[in-house]
Design a protein around this nucleic acid. Structure first.
Lengths: 111, 111
DNA sequence: AGGATATCCTAATAACTGTTAAGAGATGAT
DNA sequence: ATCATCTCTTAACAGTTATTAGGATATCCT
C-alpha cells in the first residue's frame, strides 16, 4: 500500500532544518500543485514527449505548455533533449518519478 | 533511502484516473505548498498544539493562523480537539504524517 | 464576565496564469 | 548563402486569485 513512514517523531533539530527549508519546499510544492503541470508529469511518466505532443495531450496552447515546462525545469523535475527541431522532455530522475508515484498513491490508489 | 517506486509504466487507464484527480491533487498540493501552513504541519508533527501556541511559534496573528488552520482542516490534514477554552490541533492521521515525512525526506534528509 | 477561537470584512499587495508577439535554433529548398 | 518554415522559448501585458493585515464580531466554554 505504499510509502513507509520514516519516523513518527521528528526531533526538534531536524524540525529546525525543515523550517529553514520551508520556503524551498513550499516553492517546490507550488510547482507541482498545478493541474497542468501535474498532468505533464503524469504524461512524462509513460515516456518522453515533445512539446507539441504535450500541447495536444493537454489541449493547451504551446506557449503555455512551454511555460509550465520551464517551471518544472526550474525545479529539476524534467529534462529537455533536443533532436533536430523537436525538444523532448522526460522526467529527470527517480526523484521525479517518486513524486508522481506519491501523488498517484495519495489520490488514485484509494478505492 | 525511502519511498518505493510503484511502477515505471503507469497504464493508460490509470493515467486517466490520475487526470480525473488532477484538480483534486493540485488543490491539495496548493494547500501544503504554503510556507506558513507547512510550518504548522511541521510543528504539529512534534505533537498537539493549541492555536495560541502556534500563534507564538509562528509569530503570526491569531486570525491568520486560524485561517491557515481552516484551510488545512478543509483538506483533512489536521483535526481539532477542544479542551475547555482551548482548541488543540493535531495531524489527522498517518496520511498527514506521511506527507510531512515525504517533504522532510525530499528537502531535509539530503546531505 | 472573560479568555480562546473562528469568522467576516475590507483594503493592499503579491503571486500565478494564459495570451500575444517577438526571438532563437534547426532544417530544407532555392 | 539566403530564405522560409517549423519548433520552441521568452518577455511583456492583463486578468484572476491568494495572501496578509487589521479590526470587528460572534461563539463556545469556564
Amino acid at each position: 500500500m505504499g510509502i513507509p513512514v520514516l519516523n513518527n517523531n521528528i526531533p526538534d533539530d531536524e524540525l529546525d532544518k525543515i523550517m529553514d527549508n520551508a520556503v524551498l519546499a513550499a516553492n517546490f510544492l507550488k510547482a507541482i500543485g498545478h493541474e497542468g503541470r501535474l498532468l505533464i508529469l503524469c504524461h512524462l511518466a509513460t515516456g518522453e514527449k515533445s512539446v507539441t505532443e504535450l500541447e495536444s495531450l493537454l489541449s493547451t496552447r504551446q506557449s503555455a505548455v512551454s511555460q509550465q515546462l520551464s517551471r518544472l525545469r526550474l525545479e529539476g523535475l524534467v529534462t529537455p533533449r533536443r533532436d533536430g527541431k523537436v525538444i523532448y522532455y522526460r522526467l529527470t530522475d527517480e526523484r521525479s518519478r517518486r513524486i508522481i508515484d506519491i501523488v498517484y498513491d495519495l489520490f488514485c490508489s484509494e478505492i
